[in-house]
Amino acid sequence: MIVFEDVSHDYGGGPLFRDVSARLEKGSFHFLTGPSGAGKSTFLKLCYGELLPSAGKISLMNKDVNTLSRDALAEIRQRIGVVHQDCQFLDHLSVEQNVALPLSATGRPVAESDVSDLLEWVGLAKRADALPPTLSGGERQRAALARAIIAAPNVLLADEPTGNLDWDMSQRLMSLMIELNKMGTAVLVATHDLQLIRFAKSQINARVLRISRRKLQVAGADL
């Protein structure tokens, strides 16, 4: 679904990583680790077309990102759920409306019960009518995850989705992502949290990718 071929990225101050090749297949589960500043968020942004590669080729849903029209990219994004590291919302709309946005803003029908079930799952049922600026860091992450998966995407990209959460809630969200993965969604989670990776690997077959020294490597089985 997402294919990198010899991709390099450079913000202008020298390449962040070079000649990266990777495939995120349907139904796969990947973690992405690496030191802070290694380029994990950058890698994720390349995965949904927010950034274009400096060199090499990236295909999203079998289409070359470099040649995508704006509408075609929008259509692809409707099939990719994203949890940003800094979760952004429409601050004047309620959590519930924000979570439903991927459906309502793309002309797809919204089932109120789906939204409330999902909010229940991520523990935000009581905050459904709250405005995003009044949420805590952890609540924001949970709302962002709910928004990312409301439209049952083919791919879920999550950047540190459990960074501000306690272990119970982290497990809960990870379980949700695992459920989604079992239904065929390709999942890529950038995280530092080794405990979380172990928790997931105990339940599914997840691969761990690591960015270090400008390369993308498959991490060893010790994790």
Partner: peptide
């Protein structure tokens, strides 16, 4: 940015 992220088209 948020609308883009969730796949809204320019037209919307």
């Amino acid at each position: 940015r948020v609308l883009r992220l969730v796949g809204a088209r320019d037209r919307f």
